[in-house]
Design a protein around this nucleic acid. Sequence first.
DNA 1: ACTCTTCATGGGAATGATTCTCACTTAGGT
DNA 2: ACCTAAGTGAGAATCATTCCCATGAAGAGT
Lengths: 139, 139
Amino acid sequence: MSTAKSEKSAPVTRQTRQRAAIVRGLSAAGGFRSAQALHGELRARGDGIGLATVYRVLQRLAEEGVVDRVRAAGGETAYRLCGADGHHHHLTCRMCGLAVDVTGSGVEAWAAATAREHGFAEADHTVEITGLCPRCAGR
Amino acid sequence: MSTAKSEKSAPVTRQTRQRAAIVRGLSAAGGFRSAQALHGELRARGDGIGLATVYRVLQRLAEEGVVDRVRAAGGETAYRLCGADGHHHHLTCRMCGLAVDVTGSGVEAWAAATAREHGFAEADHTVEITGLCPRCAGR
DNA sequence: ACTCTTCATGGGAATGATTCTCACTTAGGT
DNA sequence: ACCTAAGTGAGAATCATTCCCATGAAGAGT
């Protein structure tokens, strides 16, 4: 039976026009965009693309670590190109949506230690700080 | 015209059978429950109550600080009676849903400092640690 | 205790985001 | 150029949550 394929096949991830458009779109946006918003912007720009595809690609990009995912208040999920710099958290303005990346060496350690302390394995964590950015706070 | 009412009316929050049932239900549950799940449990128990009411009451309880809110993976929102002990975070098992309260003096400070550092005001934060609880990890 | 005003309730429709289905297209290896 | 598995897209299907609005009841005043 099996010749060289052995057990698992490589997850190839093809380079398609749509996938490229989505990454370009996110790049141009520069910040968070919901799947629906991104879809609208791409269409407006003339890139023919289906909503289902936007969801699919965005989800995969998230799995691949190419984009960040945050759950917005209205139940929507928003995505943003992640600067390939691995793990970090967000400081978001609850008024205008401005988001700043922050890293917290201490938090990482605390989260890991807390999990271990309670016997939890494969710990992961999310941290979101919200507040009013300088501009919004000043008004 | 206006006599003694002056400007703002007191936010009365009436004590209703339904509201009581919801709090009792959450109390009996002991952990997180989605609005839908709670509604199902209450109905099964014989407490006649509408889904819309469950959502409404749960939302208000959250505003009042009586319950915790976490956004589950499937886009659902889950609620849990909060022991009136103010601020804390959660360590959740991503397999069985077991949730443990944890407090992190260090995290609080870090979050506040980070926000201040970037000029953000009125900072708030959420921290969720997920992993596999001892039992699930052991299987 | 009786009444009146206002807030709460609930059933079902409406909304909105996300996922599914499935026939058709295409990237990439040979 | 050819084959085949992966990707795509339109619309239907799902699902959680909110809206609408007539009816019910809590609590203040008398």
